[in-house]
Design a protein around this nucleic acid. Structure first.
Lengths: 155, 155
DNA sequence: CTGTGTGCAAACATTTTGCAAGCAG
DNA sequence: CTGCTTGCAAAATGTTTGCACACAG
């Protein structure tokens, strides 16, 4: 697969259209609305959040929640979005046009900070190797209390 | 909290009873059945799996799925079981009487291998610190294909 | 006895699916 | 035109809750 890091929206769109064409699928206004909303809001969305925002940004389209689910699944299968599953906050999605990274999550306010660390990635590959696994993916989430919430708690 | 690593079942039971007493809760045969089933089967259970196994092992009790959920929540709050949430496989629980570890998961057969790596833990703390977080917990899951599934796939 | 714990069924939240109509190619 | 895509509502899934009875302390 092409390297998706730091694509512009137009490049992302072309990439999406290519994927659709390759699979005999169609480019629809709903699919574009979902992709553009994800691109313009590089946050972490639940399906519900995204559904709301897409409706708000594209009131002319009648987008159903089912389409959001179906499109997210399609985008995720093709690597255009990635998801993390947080415990109580549910599953969240984000556009995958940035370098691989992991998440640091504030247990108090829900804030998500992204980070990358090559040393850890190396160690992960080493661990997989030691256990005879071929590594395909990984998930690392650090939970803690952010600076601001630490202050608020001590009040 | 007391260090729960490598407790015998009797020690674990005492620990559980102490927690119950401290909270004004009661020790019931259902709660014991669930705890002992978890202890005797140090695997990773979904709520449903555990429910089935408890019923099978204790046919004299009529244990409901609601009790399994309630007891798992109680045990997890008190650190006697821990859970990981796998994407499609759902949330899984395991008894927490062993040292902290993370999981290496085969995407083909679902096998789960446990591992621990101090270097990674150190790096995680360092990352949290750099971002002003106080780390309370973390989750790391490596996904890959295990040795056996690699063989089967190449057939 | 008192109040917690229980199973059951209903309620819930989230996600998936069947369907007939819409529309991209 | 063809058949993929859509919204809708129904269904399925996983989890929680209200309730009346059971039972631990």
């Amino acid at each position: 697969m092409k390297n998706l890091e730091m694509l512009t929206y137009d490049e992302l769109l072309v990439e999406f259209k290519n994927i659709l064409k390759a699979d005999g699928l169609k480019f629809t206004s709903q699919r574009e609305a979902i992709l553009s909303t994800l691109y313009e809001n590089p946050q972490h969305f639940t399906s519900e959040n995204l559904y709301m925002l897409v409706k708000q940004k594209h009131p002319e389209l009648s987008v159903g929640i089912a389409t959001v689910y179906r499109t997210l699944a399609l985008l995720e299968e093709n690597g255009l979005v990635s998801s993390i599953s947080l415990g109580i906050q549910g599953k969240k999605f984000e556009i995958a046009n940035k370098p691989h990274h992991d998440h640091l999550i504030c247990e108090s306010c829900g804030k998500i900070v992204e980070f990358e660390n090559e040393k850890i990635e190396d160690l992960q590959h080493q661990i997989a190797k030691e256990n005879g696994f071929v590594l395909t993916d990984h998930l690392m989430q650090l939970y803690g209390i952010c600076t601001e919430c630490q202050k608020n708690q001590s009040k």
